[in-house]
Design a binder for these strands. Structure first.
Lengths: 211, 211
DNA sequence: GAGATTTCTTGACAAGTGTCAAACAAAGTC
DNA sequence: GACTTTGTTTGACACTTGTCAAGAAATCTC
């Protein structure tokens, strides 16, 4: 699942060994993601990551070549958790309303429960404009998210007997714009943000399909 | 709040020191914005800003209390230059088509010609999620931009004999989502990005108004 | 068990950071 | 002129950063 290419070990000695390495990496990445989500990319140091984990700062360097390697791994690890968030709703919904409410429910839920992760994502996407090494990973996730939105819109169109009225990149940009607004706004107004997002998406969703 | 005076004054005119201070601040801010736009918030230090300017790093600290003070000033200075970008188009357009093409022309133009500034803006908005001190300034600019988009959409509705079909925050989030996508995509594909943005906005604009 | 290998800790490094203060220069005031 | 205010330079400070290496500890192999 996690095809991290960091180092294709030519040492096949122990399968459980490489597995253990991978598990350490995941543990470190999860800890790093927690810190990154709280502090943001700019203010997160390797030592801070280590401090907030059960490891020392040397271990970080033992499992990751350098800082970018760690961040990059984190980003890739993160993506595996987020892009399939709505799949169940998509598959089980039997009406457009059901799909819309299910989708919006899950979306506001993740907005509230995983705020740091979303903040980090928008932070990293911005960083990728300056740090070229982040770009491939960011582009890959953007692609995944675009496909996720497209699956929803397609299904929504199906259930309403219509067809999507915009293409996939456009749909993604629109929905993402609303979601980012909600994430940014969540800091200032945690209570209102989810409902505002819901209302605005309900306004917009019907306009994205057409007979 | 800050009277960022127009740069139109070429004559020293021996006014009180205030004016000179303000002009130095503006010069420093402009230089800082250049550096920030190139390197991004995370990788820009006060010394780097000073190096890329005609001043020494001590001067920066003489005119600004600390780093946040400088960045904050930069952001406020920046906003005075960007939120009135489309006003002329709005006022002179006599048809919806004219408005749309004028708007899109100006938008793709600034996308291409002022890329660093837009990259910086999205960077800073992301930073504001982590750095509370940036939030008021960022919110103020967001408000300004929202009003800017709303003026365009209102005029567009007027010219088409319709009314806006979404509220101002929604309209802003949608258009901003498309623009941010274009800014991020510009790094990967400078040739395609402007045309893609144009096409997508043309797709979307008519859907934002309704009879 | 002993020896080899992997994993982890600790401390150090060079470079860079924001901040500041004291010396210095320039401009304005009497 | 001398004196004060304002602006600028320079160098220093305390601190953080990413990186690394030497050695201790744990683990595995035989």
């Amino acid at each position: 699942m996690i095809a991290v290419a960091s180092a294709a070990e030519e040492r096949p000695a122990r399968v459980s060994g490489i597995d253990k390495i991978e598990r350490r990496r995941v543990a470190l990445a999860e800890s790093a993601l927690k810190t990154l989500g709280e502090l943001g990319y700019a203010r997160t140091s390797l030592r801070e990551i280590a401090n907030n984990s059960e490891f020392t700062h040397g271990v970080v360097h033992y499992y990751f070549r350098d800082k970018i390697d760690l961040i990059s791994y984190c980003v890739r690890y993160y993506k595996t958790k987020c892009a399939r968030r709505y799949d169940e709703v998509i598959e089980t919904a039997t009406s457009a309303d059901e799909l819309a409410t299910g989708f919006l429910g899950k979306m506001t839920q993740t907005l509230v429960e995983e705020t740091p992760m979303h903040k980090l994502w928008y932070d990293l996407r911005a960083q990728s404009m300056f740090e070229e090494q982040l770009r491939p990973d960011v582009e890959a996730i953007d692609q995944l998210l675009e496909e996720m939105i497209w699956r929803i819109l397609s299904r929504y169109a199906d259930l309403t007997g219509t067809t999507p009225a915009v293409d996939a990149p456009t749909a993604y940009a629109l929905v993402d714009g609303l979601f980012e607004q909600a994430v940014v706004g969540y800091a200032a107004n945690p209570e209102k943000a989810p409902d505002l997002l819901t209302g605005r998406l309900l306004q917009v969703l019907p306009k994205l399909v057409a007979a």
